[in-house]
Amino acid sequence: MSINWTYALVTPDALVTGALSRTLAAFRSAGLDPVAAELIRVDVDTMLRLYDTPPGSRPVALPPPRAFRLWYDLGPACLTILRHDGAGACAAMSRLKGATDPAAARPGSIRHAAENVLMNLVHCPDDEPSALAELDLLVGPRHAEALRLQAAVADDRVRLLTVGTVEAAAPLFAGPHALSLPLAVNRVRLRVVQHLAITGMAVPDVLLLLEEARLVLLEERGELMGIETSPARIAAARARDGRVRALLRAAARTSAMENAVDRLSEVLMGSSEGWAPFLEAIRAADVYLSATESAVLEQSHYL
């Protein structure tokens, strides 16, 4: 049987409400295999372009742009590439997501548990041509091509480094560790691993370096979450910083990503450099940073 594919954008409301894990499980139960995933920032202009109707079609009534902005400022979206044995991946995903209005969504569909017609947990394309075009809009043509390659020839190492890391990389919205500096750095570094795994799949040795970095970061995460005090967490993270930084720098494929890796280490190690260069480096590397994480990392420059 031929292999078909699509993508799903698990929207910020799913991340905020803790629905990411069960959404990924729903994909699998419907025969849609997540082969790559990463946390991305989406904006109102991009989403409105996704919802544009083709010429000659009946216009779709959409909420005002302000509603989209409020929605997407909540947190990241999780872009997930899904493979499906046989034809009909887009149709299978459309059936699984359910009706736009949660009140009309059938029980068992993803959107049945959603809040409203905008915060309805997931977006997916109608067909494969739409999937191709929408990926370009969401992440740019070059990164979209790397994702399409993964859809065509899935690599279990990339699956582990991206799908297998996405929940640990997700921002925290509450709880005892939401404001921890070293844990914020840890999560952002895991997003670096995701990004590099997708863009560097064809580069020799990159995935080996990233597999090691992932293990070190997950070990660090477990250690830090078991430490009660902030000073002790910072000391433990600084003790591991050199190894993590070396692995990520060796795997980085661009100067922008190397700069982001270096800036993350500088923040963790207590650098007094200004906040603007750090933020510029993270944005240039296209790595997601939540509002809470941004506040935690910026605050460290002032204390």
Rank of each mutant, 00 (worst) to 15 (best):
E220S: 14
L215F: 15
T292M: 12
E293R: 06
A232M: 06
H84Q: 05
A152D: 10
A152Y: 06
T292G: 12
V117S: 13
L264R: 08
A285D: 02
L149E: 14
P34D: 10
P12M: 07
E211Q: 13
Y288T: 01
D33W: 11
G140M: 08
L161R: 07
D156I: 14
T254I: 04
F278H: 10
L279T: 00
R95H: 13
N116Y: 07
P76Y: 00
N4H: 06
E167P: 01
A104P: 03
V193Q: 09
F27I: 09
A251V: 11
T162D: 11
I3E: 05
L207M: 10
M47I: 12
E145C: 06
L247S: 11
P55D: 12
L132Y: 00
D286K: 01
N4P: 00
R240F: 06
A154P: 14
A87H: 03
T80K: 04
A169T: 09
I227M: 07
P182S: 11
A14F: 04
E258A: 09
L196D: 05
S265I: 02
A276T: 14
A256C: 04
L297A: 07
G98F: 02
E128T: 00
A37C: 13
Y302D: 08
H177S: 09
L190W: 11
L196M: 14
T292K: 11
Q150V: 15
R66M: 15
E273T: 09
I81L: 08
D286Q: 09
R142Y: 12
G175A: 04
D13G: 02
P12D: 06
D136N: 11
A77R: 00
I234T: 14
R187Q: 13
L279V: 01
A105R: 00
Q194P: 06
L268A: 14
H195F: 08
D136L: 02
Y288P: 02
A144F: 04
E228W: 07
M1T: 12
A285M: 05
H195S: 13
L24N: 09
V188I: 15
G86A: 07
A213S: 14
T100H: 08
G274M: 09
E228H: 15
A276G: 02
S57D: 15
T46K: 04
E220R: 12
R249M: 09
P231W: 04
G274H: 06
D241M: 11
G88Y: 00
P65K: 12
L9C: 06
P34F: 10
M1G: 14
T53K: 15
